[in-house]
């Protein structure tokens, strides 16, 4: 007897017997996780060469970053007096600390690559064309958010690499027209990278930017799902 035919299974899945394709679709619709997906896609979307699976790769890396990032948060205090020592403690005394930090670091670099490559693949496929223009725009925002998340995280170890990379990266904020120095003050919390910067970057990195990222990602995936059935031939869709 299958699990979903038992009383408990029925209460969990609430789907009818999956004999016909229509039943399968109903089961798909009533599943919380599967509701991120369309019920059907065009056959060509299954081929590796269509997408190189770079979108799903980016999502998987985001998942890896959330899990490893939450673990690191347990052992890290964003203050210049403790941050560096916390990283050393994570690497030497925390269970799997060095490994989890490595996972977080390499997943972050890979995600920047994956998201950028995803954008290029979508461009060459022409998948930004009407009526998907706005999902491309959301994708560009997600790319910018990915870079910002990576950049804010770069400062947190508070070593020479982090400190000076962020000093270089933010030095250009001075040249933003009109607001100029103001933009830099808001970003750094002072006139140079210091305790206020570390706290700001930390809050951006673990709260604000991830929330924006997940929110926009939901819209991105929702639009992808809605558009999955569109005709994808030259001049297809509505003329």
């Amino acid at each position: 007897m299958k699990l979903r035919e038992t009383t408990i299974g029925r209460s969990l899945f609430r789907s009818p017997d999956r004999e016909t394709e229509r039943d399968q679709a109903a089961g798909h619709w009533s599943n919380f996780l599967l509701h991120l997906y369309p019920v059907k896609v065009r056959r060509r979307e299954l081929h590796f060469s269509f997408s190189w699976y770079l979108g799903v790769t980016s999502v998987v890396l985001l998942g890896s970053l959330v899990v490893s990032g939450v673990y690191l948060m347990f052992f890290y205090v964003p203050s210049p007096s403790s941050a560096y020592g916390d990283i050393q403690t994570i690497q030497t005394q925390v269970a799997f600390g060095q490994f989890i930090r490595n996972v977080h670091r390499w997943s972050a670099h890979l995600m920047v690559l994956a998201v950028a490559a995803h954008m290029a693949r979508v461009f060459y496929r022409g998948a930004y064309k009407s009526p998907r223009e706005f999902n491309w725009v959301i994708g560009v925002m997600l790319l910018v958010l990915t870079l910002l998340l990576s950049f804010t995280g770069y400062l947190l170890p508070w070593d020479q690499l982090a400190y000076w990379a962020v000093t270089v990266g933010t030095s250009m904020a001075d040249f933003v027209p009109i607001i100029g120095g103001g933009a830099r003050d808001v970003l750094l919390g002072s006139d140079q990278v210091g305790a206020a910067t570390l706290l700001r970057f930390y809050v951006l990195h673990v709260a604000l930017l991830p929330l924006l990222m997940v929110g926009l990602l939901m819209v991105h995936l929702w639009r992808w799902r809605k558009d999955a059935m569109l005709d994808q031939t030259d001049g297809g869709g509505e003329a």
Partner: peptide, 22 residues
């Protein structure tokens, strides 16, 4: 993807230089 991340994370440690010095 997760296998790739796991292998890279086992083989290579994330860099950590000396403490930040303004």
């Amino acid at each position: 993807v997760l296998l790739l991340v796991l292998i890279v994370a086992v083989l290579f440690d994330a860099p950590l230089r000396e403490v930040a010095n303004p």
